[in-house]
Simulated scan of single mutants.
Amino acid sequence: MVKIRIKDVKVKSIAVPIRGKLLRVAGEHPGRNVFTLVEIITDEGVTGYGETGGGGFSLAPLIEKLKDQLIGEDAFNIRKLKWKIASPITATYYNQLLPQIWFPIETALLDIKGKALGVSISNLLGGQLKDSIEVSAYIFPTKDTETVEDLVTNAEMIVRRYGFTSIKLKTGVFKPEHEIDVVKALAEKFPHARFRIDPNGAWNLSQAINAAKSLNGIRIEYFEDPVWTMEGLRAFKQATGYTVATNTVATRFEDVPNVFLRGAVDVILGDPHWWYGIYGYLELSATLWSLGLELGMHSPSETGIALAAMLHSAAVTQNLGYAIDTHYIYLEDDIIKKPLNIENGKIKVPIEPGLGVEIDESQIEKYENFYRETGDYPYQGQKDIVTIPKLKFRNCKCHV
């Protein structure tokens, strides 16, 4: 059998501006996202791309040091390369960075394999169950939407523009009563919409339970990490009866038995970034299916490269029962030639070979330069001290 060998690996750091200074529990977003791109070049001239990002820091320095472990290897033998790069013993030192290091490498390898064989990644993985993927409206407050009315107006514009029917509201920024009023106002505007509430664990148990009871009668899909700890989530779930999702207390395969045995959550929000790539996400899917837990998809933020990988993951996963999250609507620009289109709340899964998106090298160069000018940033706002549960919420103009 002919083998396609890895000839070279290029790692690049880019920064892409986003629309607005988004507010979240960790403070004010600096207005750009940092991404790490991996380009794998083979001796047959087939090139694959992958991407990771979301935390404010480039992972290029770490991935650069792995190049020698990849060059010369068979690009088709993805399983061997995973255990060469991402063995559990390595996770002892890299912890949650390791899956984010592996994800862009695996994506690039799958891109190569799909292109070489003339099939899309989802067909490479056995075939699409869905040809389009529902996505949620990811609504953040900003410095320009510090009243309920302003935030609802902005959210309404987003929902109507893209046709969303699932609305995710980033909370834990203002006082709970402010955010409760936002959900109620949005529910009046969109009575048939489904809502997911995500305070990033900022509320204490009392605040979380009071918020949940205040929203009785509204179509709540789930509360995502309403409190921080696993025992707190179990207590919230028991007290309110609401569906509970997490991407904090279950972020590794070792966590899954614990949340299952404690009955702490119903939905684990996996994603290829944090769960060892597309194959890892499929392994998580099978694990949760066997335990009777549900599967969603979290978004750390992504350009069209990683979003395409997320779409392929979602397309082949039979037990993904919820719209996936994405920050894509906030990017001011993209590094693929034809940005992915959200219509009627859904994105079509690419069908061309590999990832199915065409890279725009001039855009990569542009945003490499922007990264050089602006650099990395801490995920937590530089002026913010963030306690969990949160002791001080941002002042708004409508709740004294």
Rank of each mutant, 00 (worst) to 15 (best):
I197S: 01
K213V: 10
P199Q: 09
I180D: 05
P176M: 14
K175W: 04
V173I: 12
E177F: 03
G232I: 01
V173A: 05
E177P: 00
A187C: 09
P191W: 11
A208L: 01
E231L: 11
E149H: 03
A239R: 10
E146C: 06
L151W: 00
T240A: 00
E221F: 02
Y162L: 00
A193V: 09
V182N: 06
K213A: 02
T243S: 11
K184S: 07
L205C: 03
P226D: 06
A208I: 01
V148I: 13
T251N: 06
E224V: 05
L169E: 00
T240I: 06
I209W: 06
F236Y: 04
P176I: 12
L169A: 04
R194A: 09
S214A: 15
T153C: 04
Y222F: 15
I197V: 12
R252V: 07
S214W: 07
T153D: 14
H178K: 15
A202N: 05
R196G: 07
L233D: 07
K175E: 13
F164P: 00
V152F: 05
P199M: 12
T243Q: 12
E179P: 02
K213N: 14
Q238W: 06
I180G: 04
Q207L: 02
Q238L: 14
Y162G: 02
E146V: 10
G201Y: 06
N200R: 02
V227A: 10
V227F: 03
V173L: 05
V182L: 08
Y242S: 03
V244K: 06
T165W: 02
T153N: 14
V227H: 07
A202R: 03
T243I: 10
I218P: 00
F164Y: 15
N216P: 01
H178E: 13
R252Y: 10
E146Q: 13
V244F: 11
K168V: 01
E231V: 08
G172Y: 09
E156D: 14
